[in-house]
Simulated scan of single mutants.
Amino acid sequence: MSKRYGLIGKNIDYSFSRAYFAEKFEKLKDKESVYVNFDLQNLSEFNDTVLNQKDLKGLNVTIPYKQSIIPYLDSLSKKAKAIGAVNTIQVNKKGQLKGYNTDWYGFYHSLKPLLKFHHKRALILGTGGASKAIEYALKKLGIKYIFVSRTKESDNLLYSELTEEILTKYTVIINTTPVGTFPNIDQMPEVPMEYINDRHIIYDLIYNPEETALMKAATLKGAKTKNGYEMLVLQAEKAYKIWNKPFERD
């Protein structure tokens, strides 16, 4: 019996997941498993394009569908429910779908080794689906946080409001936006770099390019930088374990 896995997203030719799992299956000498991209221009294509696949066992979900996929699922894990975003789906033999979030796990375990005593507060750049898992992980780490966005809401800052005082207090900065992703590698979020120093961690969820414009600018200021590659590997391995464990209904 074959096992089919895949990635749901939009414009995902660049995908990390397909290449990663193809290599994983090869290392495991697993000739039954296959991983494909489901590039959906609209999530309304999900039922006809994805769910009619034979032997479907598990899915990853990426931008822009991590939140909008939830109504299509039969159940959610407790953590996915708390986060409000899904990046992993387990499919049982009856075709029932259960949503999980492994992004928080990947971020948590890749950030934790970098933290020092003064890393008490964080700025989360962006308010999309990816930011929800980061928020959850920061809560687990006991780090206070505030969102930064281009549009003003009740509980966030604008980039134009990032003062020296704020950036002195908030020494962890996480970019959850796609700004700076290939091919737009010269772009970066509008963080005032003159206030960044060697007490800062700049964590960019982007992995292509390996070093973003934001990371380059931060490195010049002495900050510790990290891209999203390790987070991706950790979340992928966690997703693989979920796909291959017994299906549980919460």
Rank of each mutant, 00 (worst) to 15 (best):
residue 211 E to I: 15
residue 191 V to G: 02
residue 180 G to V: 06
residue 194 E to M: 15
residue 170 Y to A: 09
residue 180 G to C: 04
residue 198 D to F: 14
residue 174 I to R: 01
residue 158 L to V: 06
residue 210 E to N: 11
residue 191 V to N: 01
residue 175 N to C: 08
residue 205 L to K: 04
residue 183 P to I: 07
residue 165 E to L: 13
residue 214 L to E: 02
residue 201 I to P: 03
residue 157 L to E: 03
residue 189 P to Y: 01
residue 187 Q to Y: 11
residue 180 G to E: 00
residue 216 K to T: 09
residue 173 I to V: 15
residue 176 T to D: 04
residue 174 I to A: 00
residue 193 M to L: 15
residue 166 I to S: 06
residue 214 L to I: 09
residue 187 Q to R: 09
residue 206 I to D: 00
residue 215 M to F: 09
residue 168 T to W: 10
residue 197 N to R: 07
residue 214 L to A: 06
residue 194 E to I: 13
residue 157 L to T: 03
residue 182 F to H: 09
residue 171 T to K: 06
residue 192 P to S: 14
residue 159 Y to F: 15
residue 193 M to D: 10
residue 204 D to L: 11
residue 188 M to F: 04
residue 212 T to E: 03
residue 203 Y to D: 02
residue 201 I to E: 11
residue 199 R to Q: 15
residue 183 P to L: 04
residue 169 K to L: 14
residue 160 S to H: 12
residue 159 Y to Q: 03
residue 175 N to K: 07
residue 197 N to W: 05
residue 187 Q to M: 11
residue 182 F to W: 10
residue 207 Y to D: 05
residue 161 E to Q: 15
residue 177 T to E: 02
residue 209 P to D: 07
residue 158 L to S: 05
residue 200 H to I: 12
residue 161 E to V: 07
residue 212 T to G: 08
residue 203 Y to H: 10
residue 209 P to N: 06
residue 193 M to N: 14
residue 187 Q to T: 12
residue 196 I to P: 01
residue 183 P to Y: 03
residue 201 I to R: 09
residue 195 Y to K: 06
residue 192 P to G: 12
residue 182 F to R: 02
residue 167 L to R: 03
residue 167 L to C: 14
residue 184 N to C: 08
residue 209 P to C: 09
residue 181 T to P: 00
residue 185 I to R: 02
residue 208 N to M: 08
residue 156 N to Y: 01
residue 207 Y to K: 03
residue 185 I to G: 00
residue 185 I to E: 06
residue 214 L to K: 01
residue 196 I to T: 12
residue 171 T to W: 01
residue 205 L to W: 04
residue 180 G to N: 05
residue 186 D to H: 14
residue 210 E to L: 13
residue 191 V to Q: 03
residue 218 A to K: 00
residue 160 S to Q: 15
residue 175 N to S: 13
residue 173 I to M: 12
residue 188 M to A: 14
residue 167 L to S: 04
residue 192 P to R: 11
residue 190 E to M: 13
residue 187 Q to V: 06
residue 171 T to L: 12
residue 174 I to H: 01
residue 212 T to P: 02
residue 162 L to H: 01
residue 214 L to N: 04
residue 207 Y to G: 07
residue 163 T to R: 11
residue 198 D to T: 12
residue 158 L to R: 09
residue 174 I to C: 03
residue 172 V to H: 03
residue 172 V to Y: 05
residue 167 L to H: 04
residue 207 Y to Q: 05
residue 204 D to G: 11
residue 186 D to Q: 15
residue 169 K to A: 14
residue 166 I to C: 10
residue 200 H to M: 14
residue 183 P to F: 08
residue 156 N to L: 01
residue 190 E to Y: 08
residue 176 T to P: 01
residue 194 E to Y: 11
residue 200 H to A: 11
residue 196 I to E: 02
residue 171 T to E: 06
residue 200 H to T: 10
residue 157 L to R: 05
residue 160 S to D: 13
residue 177 T to S: 01
residue 155 D to K: 07
residue 156 N to P: 00
residue 181 T to N: 04
residue 182 F to Q: 02
residue 203 Y to E: 05
residue 195 Y to A: 14
residue 210 E to P: 00
residue 161 E to W: 09
residue 160 S to F: 12
residue 179 V to S: 00
residue 160 S to V: 10
residue 213 A to D: 09
residue 168 T to Q: 14
residue 189 P to K: 01
residue 218 A to S: 09
residue 196 I to L: 11
residue 157 L to S: 02
residue 216 K to R: 14
